[in-house]
């Protein structure tokens, strides 16, 4: 069964149609990077998967469950989907440990001891074991994002959504977050990643989806998208982002 199936998904904000009919299927174990110009609907597409945005038309299936069905228990589906945000969105009033345990305890009903044990394992996984007692405001952006990933992992998700996870980070902190994501991909986690990190898309993803004007303009293995794009607009976009603006001194 496919991990995610989007079928004719459309989304409008007022008169502005951001998604204009998206068909996309993601299989378990795939690492799919969504790239494209700003305003092309990448984040909206991602947010339609766990229904943070409700599609105006079309259907979204996650693990076989139609989340666009009004009778769907969306909370139950979201438990199985890890989400990582551009702005981290750690719970500021809770310590790192409590950020990782609160949903395990309140949503999954795990005991305190087992939730803490899972939290400990996931903090170790992102290399932040010593920060369990710290509060989010005491951490760097890169550390906060790694905690956010550990928080999502603590729910034992079947798939992970990343919404521009490194876009709010200082350049020198991007690497540590990408390293954690690369580790997850190597372990076989199903991942849908909206990103501007072309090197990550090229090296880590199994498939690259190029979104332009609210539709999937082109998709394929990274070697094809980055090496020999079929569409002129894909080539134009990649040229813009990959070739640094030349400045005469």
């Amino acid at each position: 069964m496919s991990a995610i199936v989007l079928n004719g998904v459309r989304k409008s904000f007022g008169a502005n149609e951001v998604l204009r009919g998206i068909d996309l299927t993601i299989e378990p174990g795939e690492v799919v990077c969504v790239i494209g110009p700003s305003g092309s609907g990448k984040s909206t597409l991602l947010r339609c998967v766990n229904l943070l945005e409700t599609p105006t038309a079309g259907t979204v299936h996650v693990g076989g469950v139609d989340v666009t069905d009004p009778d769907c228990d969306i909370d139950a589906v979201r438990r199985r989907i890890g989400m990582v945000f551009q702005q981290f969105n750690l719970f500021g009033h809770l310590s790192v440990r409590d950020n990782l345990t609160i949903a395990q305890r309140r949503v999954l009903g795990r005991s305190k001891a087992s939730a803490v044990e899972v939290a400990r394992a996931n903090l170790a996984r992102v290399g932040l074991s010593e920060k369990a007692g710290a509060y989010p405001a005491q951490l760097s952006g890169g550390q906060q994002q790694r905690v956010a990933i550990a928080r999502a992992l603590s729910m034992d998700p079947e798939l992970m959504l990343f919404d521009e996870p490194t876009s709010a980070l200082d350049p020198e902190l991007v690497g540590e977050v990408l390293a954690v994501m690369r580790g997850l991909a190597d372990e076989g986690m199903t991942m849908l990643v909206v990103t501007h990190e072309m090197a990550f898309a090229r090296e880590v993803s199994s498939r690259v989806v190029f979104l332009d004007g609210g539709v999937v303009a082109e998709q394929g293995p990274p070697a094809q998208i980055f090496g020999a794009p079929k569409e002129a607009r894909t080539a134009a976009f990649l040229k813009r982002v990959l070739e640094p603006t030349h400045v005469d001194l």
Partner: peptide, 30 residues
């Protein structure tokens, strides 16, 4: 309380009420 706090809580599978009680109200009261 920033909208992102709601989104993070709901994305973890919390119901509206649970997110309000565990995540939003404690920060609102501060």
């Amino acid at each position: 309380v920033p909208k992102g706090q709601w989104e993070a809580a709901r994305s973890l599978g919390m119901s509206h009420t649970r997110a309000m009680v565990s995540i939003v109200l404690p920060q609102a009261f501060r």
